[in-house]
Computed example of a mutant assay.
Amino acid sequence: LLDRIENREPADILVSANMEHPQKLADDGFATQPVVLVRNRLCATALPNSNLTTENLLDRLMDPRVRLGTSTPKADPGGDYVWMMFA
């Protein structure tokens, strides 16, 4: 998205999981100074029939039968956070 905005694709509002990209857009004259709206946490979601709970989350993550999906590391901060959790 950063590249698209820098290449003049119209955008009214950018909401980002990090401050680096919005700050770069502001520094380069593409946007106003970023403002923190919320703080984020890593969260897990699952299909309703997965029976995922706070208590069994770690066990479910470690279960080889469970298929995990995550945002793309280095392309999305959410993916970076998940890889830090894996580490």
Rank of each mutant, 00 (worst) to 15 (best):
L1S: 13
L2W: 01
L2E: 03
D3W: 00
I5W: 12
I5V: 08
I5Q: 01
I5R: 02
E6K: 06
E6L: 09
N7E: 01
N7L: 01
N7I: 07
N7W: 00
R8F: 03
R8W: 10
R8G: 13
E9M: 13
P10N: 00
P10C: 07
A11W: 04
A11E: 02
A11L: 02
D12K: 04
I13E: 00
I13Y: 10
L14K: 13
V15F: 10
V15C: 06
S16M: 09
S16E: 07
S16I: 14
A17D: 04
A17Y: 05
A17E: 11
A17Q: 11
N18M: 03
N18L: 10
M19C: 08
E20I: 13
H21Y: 06
H21C: 11
H21T: 03
P22S: 00
P22T: 11
P22D: 05
P22V: 08
K24D: 12
K24T: 11
K24V: 05
K24P: 06
K24L: 11
L25H: 09
A26N: 04
A26G: 03
D27A: 02
D28G: 06
D28T: 02
D28W: 04
F30H: 05
F30N: 04
F30K: 15
F30W: 12
A31E: 12
T32N: 01
Q33H: 01
P34F: 00
V35C: 12
V35A: 01
V35Y: 11
V36D: 06
L37K: 12
L37A: 09
L37Q: 05
V38E: 01
R39T: 01
R39D: 11
N40D: 11
N40H: 14
L42S: 09
A44M: 02
A44K: 01
T45Y: 06
A46P: 04
A46T: 09
P48E: 02
P48G: 08
N49Q: 05
N49V: 13
N49F: 11
S50C: 04
N51L: 13
L52W: 02
L52M: 15
T53W: 08
T53P: 14
T54D: 01
T54Q: 11
T54L: 03
T54F: 09
E55P: 14
L57A: 12
L57N: 00
L58N: 07
L58M: 12
D59C: 02
D59W: 13
L61D: 01
L61P: 14
D63F: 10
D63C: 13
D63P: 14
P64C: 05
P64L: 04
P64D: 06
R65V: 07
R67K: 00
R67I: 03
L68A: 11
L68F: 03
L68H: 06
L68Q: 05
L68I: 07
L68G: 09
G69I: 00
G69H: 04
G69V: 06
T70R: 00
S71T: 14
S71N: 15
S71C: 14
T72E: 15
T72V: 12
P73V: 08
P73D: 12
P73C: 14
K74P: 00
A75N: 12
D76G: 10
D76W: 08
P77N: 15
G78M: 09
G79V: 05
G79D: 04
G79N: 08
D80E: 09
Y81I: 10
Y81Q: 03
V82G: 08
V82I: 10
V82P: 05
W83G: 12
W83D: 15
M84C: 02
M84G: 07
M85C: 15
M85V: 15
M85Y: 15
A87T: 07
